[in-house]
Design a protein around this nucleic acid. Structure first.
Lengths: 99, 99
DNA sequence: GGTGAAACTTTGTGGCGCAAAGTTACGTAA
DNA sequence: TTACGTAACTTTGCGCCACAAAGTTTCACC
């Protein structure tokens, strides 16, 4: 039986799932690039990133090359949590994929 | 790129995802069995089932063999929507599964 | 007629996603 | 040096929704 209760609630939300997926696929993302890629308002994006940061899943680096510029990356905990989440997805797919 | 916007919002919720997964695995479920399997309060379970029913994903059959007894099943639309949802999950897994 | 169970409905509460507008800091053009 | 623009926030407000708890209806059985 699949244990849906272990679906991490922080990750199991469309916006944050998309963010985590991007962060897992590339070591670092600038705020502006995330915003463009996700077509998300900056306020909304920042809020999701703060939620992920509070959970310890995302680290941020502030720089000031000309304009202020913040970059985001997965922490080890974040990668671990994401892979755990994906493992649950995989068990769902395994069970229901027509093959 | 993965299109997260096509993650069906009705299905993308832990409780309803669990329900849909059960309904997809067996042709019919009685309310009591769902309740036991999911450890969900009856009020909460009924609400989720109503949401799924309104979306056209679930059909219900009321019987009265002694106690009232309602059974639930996936509709064709429900199965289609669920498989579409699982297909998105699969694309996420494909992209991120370490292999 | 009273009890109990199934399957609801109702009510209330807290949390959350999201948009819109305001804020701060800084760098550039006039 | 003042005005403007942009990045990266914060704040405010709205509306929806998950969830629990309690009330309701129907029916079978004692």
């Amino acid at each position: 039986m699949i244990d849906f209760s272990q679906l991490d609630k922080v990750i199991h939300e469309k916006g944050r799932l998309a963010i985590m997926s991007l962060l897992a696929a590339r070591p670092e993302w600038r705020f502006q690039d995330l915003k463009t890629e996700l077509s998300m308002s900056d306020g909304n994006l920042v809020t999701h990133l703060r939620t992920l940061h509070k959970a310890g899943y995302v680290s941020l680096t502030k720089e000031h090359d000309g304009r202020p510029q913040t970059s985001y990356a997965l922490t080890d905990r974040g990668r671990e949590a994401f892979l755990g989440y994906v493992a649950v997805l995989e068990s769902i797919v395994q069970k229901h994929k027509p093959s």
